[in-house]
């Protein structure tokens, strides 16, 4: 695929998202408020037990984990499911399919611009604030590089899952139900609502075998571990790579099959 074409879409996305000055502000303010809520909530939660460490996590560990999970979520959430659903309902999807680009890539690159602005406006400020506030709780070393690699995998897995969910919209008009379900389930199973370390036993093991934990839990545990054992690091990234490839294939195949079905039925 022509890489220039992709970046043109990214650029257009950045311009588009910068148009909305007020909404950028709302996003930033909203995130701050959200962070405050999480902070107070978990402070109260930790205050209710006698120990400082619960399930191997201190208050500041939990806080960093959850805050960055939210920041990652904001950066990765492209509202792809809404978009596909909306286009399917309005019939605009037919126009998109005529574009000389695979729809999956077209949509990804169209939204990459928003992701870039989100990265600078929400993730980066949050990251800096958290680093300063927790005063050295985030190790700053090679783990940052591993973190970036891990996030790239996470973005890819997340997009594949979004795309699969979006594809379901071809079969139903109820995009609302799907849209509601997706983030809640993904956030819970990926450890973004409550760190996976807190999960009671059978759950914890089950969740480890699902792709979702690769989206938030994996990059965050890579980030918080300043001195990782190479074997552990490679396992985490390896599992991510595995899910990345698998979900990519599944999402492509599912889209292809669904599209054939739809065109046959003349939907």
């Amino acid at each position: 695929m022509n890489i220039k074409r992709c970046f043109t879409l990214t650029r257009a996305g950045i311009i588009e998202s910068l148009q909305f000055r007020l909404s950028t502000l709302v996003v930033v303010a909203g995130n701050l408020l959200y962070l405050v809520v999480i902070y107070h909530l978990w402070q109260a939660i930790f205050a209710s037990v006698d120990t400082d460490v619960v399930n191997g996590m201190t208050f500041s560990d939990t806080l960093i984990y959850l805050v960055l999970a939210t920041a990652l979520f904001n950066f990765m959430e492209m509202y792809v499911v809404w978009e596909i659903g909306r286009r399917v309902q309005s019939g605009e999807i037919a126009l998109d399919l005529l574009k000389p680009m695979k729809y999956r890539s077209f949509l990804f690159w169209s939204y990459s611009g928003t992701a870039v602005t989100q990265f600078f406006f929400t993730f980066l400020p949050t990251f800096i604030v958290v680093t300063i506030v927790t005063n050295g709780a985030i190790p700053l070393g090679w783990n940052l590089l591993y973190f970036v690699i891990s996030v790239v995998f996470a973005v890819s897995i997340n997009y594949s899952i979004d795309f699969i969910t979006g594809t379901i919209c071809l079969y139903t008009e109820s995009i609302w139900g799907i849209n509601m379900m997706k983030p809640v389930i993904v956030l819970l199973l990926s450890g973004a609502t409550i760190p996976i370390a807190f999960f009671p036993e059978p759950f914890k093991t089950i969740v480890q075998y699902l792709p979702f934990q690769s989206i938030y839990n994996a990059p965050l545990s890579v980030l918080l571990d300043g001195n990782p054992e190479p074997a552990k690091l490679l396992t985490t990234l390896g599992i991510q790579l595995f899910w990345c490839v698998l979900m990519n294939i599944v999402s492509r195949v599912f889209w292809k099959i669904s599209l054939r079905q739809i065109t046959v039925n003349g939907g």
């Binding site: 037990v49 139900g177 509601m180 379900m181 809640v184 819970l188 409550i194 999960f199 759950f203």
Partner: peptide, 25 residues
């Protein structure tokens, strides 16, 4: 589908609530 979505959402909410109280009294 949307009813299932609704149920899942509520169950997921309840599970996170429950997990929290598994760890904290």
């Amino acid at each position: 589908i949307s009813t299932i979505g609704m149920i899942f959402t509520n169950v997921a909410g309840f599970i996170s609530f429950w997990i929290l109280f598994q760890n904290f009294p």
